[in-house]
Design a protein around this nucleic acid. Structure first.
Lengths: 335, 335
DNA sequence: TTGAAAGCGCTAACAG
DNA sequence: CTGTTAGCGCTTTCAA
């Protein structure tokens, strides 16, 4: 329909063969005389030739595209992660295809299928709901290089994670140092693997601070602002004076819930969040939180995936990145 | 290298021709006998055949992909918008390629180039920094269907916007009804087109409420939380008792800034935001804001773009979607 | 109801 | 240095 300019047109215009054009335009220009090179380049510009992506990919069998599946693009942690991947990808003229699964398994399955259809070069899985079955049936079968980040329980494949266990420990240590003896944790109802590690870290740190683990101080809720809000009601029925939330979003909900119940942070409850999102310092009071090295995570993940794509037979690696505590005003000495 | 299953393999396995397989697998199954159909379907499944995307696209000349360029994926307004586009696209087995320009013109240019390279089917431009030059040189030249959403000042092309003028009016009317006479506006330093419309709506509504426009009550700042925070210092130097912020993010910063200065919302200042993001009801106090119909925006945009792709010669359209005021507790009667 | 043949636009040996 | 040749994997007439 359209009069797309093809390599044939360029060849004709420059009065050379198609393969000459192809080679000159693909980094093999030094094989040719200066004269021919000029002619071809000139013809390309005169005609405004742009190589057809599909035709080229059909041959080279690469689409210069990697997929990224995240659970929720609206979560600041993931949007930051994505930005960092996107930036790195673009440096390599590669595009990142972002898919947000939004807790919709059906959608996620379709997403994955689409990615495979497009014979994507590799895929980063940051969503906990991709299971072993999908990995086996879809990815491995089609030999798609993939990499898991910490959400996912699957052991099979490269992984990059952050030290969730230690993150929770840091939080609990901080609260214990402030004199808190009754430290609650607001946990996810359906925890992904990294969240479970946070829970273990919490338990372990209680122990190492000489505090007793009390099941009543573990409150399960949805991983959302509403979940956090609802947790407030349960929290005030305990004798806790401090609380670690499974992430910052839940902490934001908790703030609101406590507020509605007439409770104050940090006077009635010291709160530590997890993720250290931008928003934390703007909350009232600014939220103490555990910071994960998101950009480093992005960079490591991207680098590892590229390595894997280049060399599928590399041994599997597992990388653990350190986290740190960022103190703000949501925690205070127990008086 | 890999033993990709091709249509040829399926044909051989089912003992029919390639073209038979192709036709049966592409909606023309009714031309064939039930027997052949079964054989082919069976072979497909047995072999786990997936058509090669590039090869197919090479012929059909469509990649079933649309691009979406947003200024910042981390802004909840855009992440919600994207989710809604992503969902609609997936229903049509189409993928949306999200690009966040993050105020990086260079990156944005590269992004656009990449999209065009990939002969994307169409593109949604929600970023204000794509200019007329890019539209002309890149999009029009390559006949890429595109659609603008309200950020962009360019008049040439389909547009879908929300009624920014009225949004600001609603905010000012609300504040005026509460008895406020000195209503400030926190404006973007470098306003995109839709933000300018908000400003005009603000001015106009002051007028229609018998209030005088006072330049001192217009505070320019960066479009960010920090920008909002900085604006607080300037705000307290005025005699304003109420304020409309250019968006919710700025309002969040403003809250924090006022807080640091010992001022209270809504006792000292009534605040109205713009965007009605999720977070608004979790702020202290919950933020009164102007709500844009994001999902309707997404749906309209997507529908229009598809129409345009199918029929490039359609006359240009411009659609304006209504907004509404969502009252919460950041505004109160002037006492 | 089926299959043969002709490409889509491009790259990659391999000659010369 | 440059061109010829042979496909990549698929769809689509068109003829049987």
């Amino acid at each position: 329909m359209t009069n797309r300019v093809t390599i044939r047109d360029v060849a004709r215009y420059a009065d050379v063969s198609m393969s000459t054009v192809s080679q000159i335009l693909n980094g093999k220009a030094n094989r040719f005389s200066n004269d021919t090179r000029q002619k071809v380049l000139y013809a390309r510009d005169a005609l405004g030739y742009v190589p057809d992506f599909n035709a080229r990919n059909l041959i080279t069998n690469s689409v210069k595209t990697i997929g990224v599946i995240v659970p929720d693009i609206g979560n600041p942690f993931f949007s930051t992660f994505i930005k960092s991947i996107e930036f790195l990808a673009m440096e390599q003229n590669c595009i990142s295809l972002i898919l947000s699964s939004n807790d919709n398994q059906e959608l996620e399955r379709k997403h994955l299928e689409q990615l495979i259809n497009r014979s994507i070069d590799g895929i980063i899985i940051a969503s906990p709901s991709i299971g072993q079955a999908e990995i086996d049936n879809q990815l491995k079968k089609n030999r798609i290089p993939y990499l898991l980040i910490d959400q996912n329980p699957i052991a099979d494949g490269d992984r990059v994670m952050t030290d969730d266990f230690n993150g929770a420990e840091l939080a609990v240590n901080h609260l214990a140092q402030l004199g808190h003896r009754k430290i609650a944790m607001i946990m996810a109802k359906k925890p992904s693997d990294n969240l479970k590690r946070r829970f273990f870290g919490y338990k372990h740190a209680l122990n190492s601070n000489g505090l007793e683990f009390d099941e009543k101080l573990v409150i399960s809720t949805e991983m959302s602002k509403i979940g956090g809000m609802n947790a407030a009601n349960k929290l005030i029925q305990t004798d806790a004076t401090a609380v670690l939330t499974v992430n910052d979003e839940v902490a934001i909900g908790l703030y609101h819930g406590l507020n509605l119940l007439g409770k104050s942070v940090p006077d009635d409850y010291s709160v530590v969040g997890y993720d250290n999102i931008d928003l934390d310092e703007y909350l009232a009071p600014p939220l103490t939180s555990i910071s994960q090295p998101i950009h480093e995570l992005g960079a490591t993940v991207f680098k590892k995936l590229i390595e894997r794509i280049k060399n599928p037979d590399l041994p599997q690696t597992e990388i653990m990145l350190p986290v740190k505590l960022v103190k703000r005003n949501s925690t205070k000495k127990l008086s």
